[in-house]
Design a protein around this nucleic acid. Structure first.
Lengths: 138, 138
DNA sequence: TATATGTTATAGATGATATAGAACAGAGAA
DNA sequence: TTCTCTGTTCTATATCATCTATAACATATA
């Protein structure tokens, strides 16, 4: 299991779960249609409460990333429903980018870091699809 | 005053202040050496508590953006002391960028949005310096 | 010396986070 | 059908972060 939780972090547990699921989707580790662990199972695995996991899953559902169904569980949606523009994402990006700018880091350098992060996601995705390709061939 | 607070936002007031000060520094509205409003004054202006403003200023100081001195007040530092790399900024960037990636927005498009935000900061800064240039000439 | 400013201390109210236990609801499997 | 696995809802409690309130302290500057 790729999930890593820091129970002492100031970042709430349910948001740590939310963040890492989104990153897993971005990197292709969680492909559309794949299932997240059942709420109770994940709670047991990490020694946390059922309700904490539930809140994380609810958040992911409200953000349009997963679908929750009884008996079936949480599954990653192929086409996320909520558009980025409708969220406050651009504002959060602005706030985050203001930080290195205020620290007088050159824009080129900041863009390069962004590009690197995006490339990492992309290369993880392509590695994964290649591996699947080899499996289908063999 | 450029500060705009939403007392009902889920974003804590002291972080709203912190965010907007950082953005003001990034856009050049707060130049190095310039003063922030006194804690008590800002608290009165927005009808909030002295300690809330103090916490915002403390945060800004801990992040290396401002210097706090008795009698003098809070002043923007010319050279922020804390390097970006030492902070968790790259991790927060990764989490934030994962969002549009998971929503299947193309990397080019995401980079373009980042570039646009950075250009906005830069153009605000250059407009401001031009205006100052004209003042010096006249 | 007086004053404006940040700093520290104590106390209380409110809401978010996390836990605990129990039960309900419904989809899928036997 | 019945069983069982999953999400869902409910009540209750504990803890922590945030915000407020009041007061006093510390000190650089005028």
């Amino acid at each position: 299991m790729w999930l890593v939780l820091d129970l002492k972090s100031e970042r709430p547990i349910y948001l740590q779960i939310r963040d890492q699921v989104v990153e897993a989707i971005a990197s292709g580790r969680l492909a559309p249609g794949s299932a997240l662990p059942p709420i109770r199972q994940l709670a047991i695995d990490f020694g946390i409460n059922l309700h904490t996991v539930h809140k994380a899953y609810e958040t992911l559902r409200d953000e349009g990333f997963v679908q929750l169904r009884r008996k079936v569980g949480a599954t990653v949606l192929a086409t996320p429903e909520t558009p980025v523009a409708a969220s406050d994402w651009p504002l959060r990006l602005r706030t985050l980018l203001a930080e290195p700018v205020a620290r007088q880091i050159a824009s080129d350098e900041i863009v390069a870091v962004c590009q690197r992060v995006l490339d990492e996601f992309a290369s993880e995705r392509s590695e994964r699809s290649e591996r699947i390709g080899r499996l289908k061939e063999g």
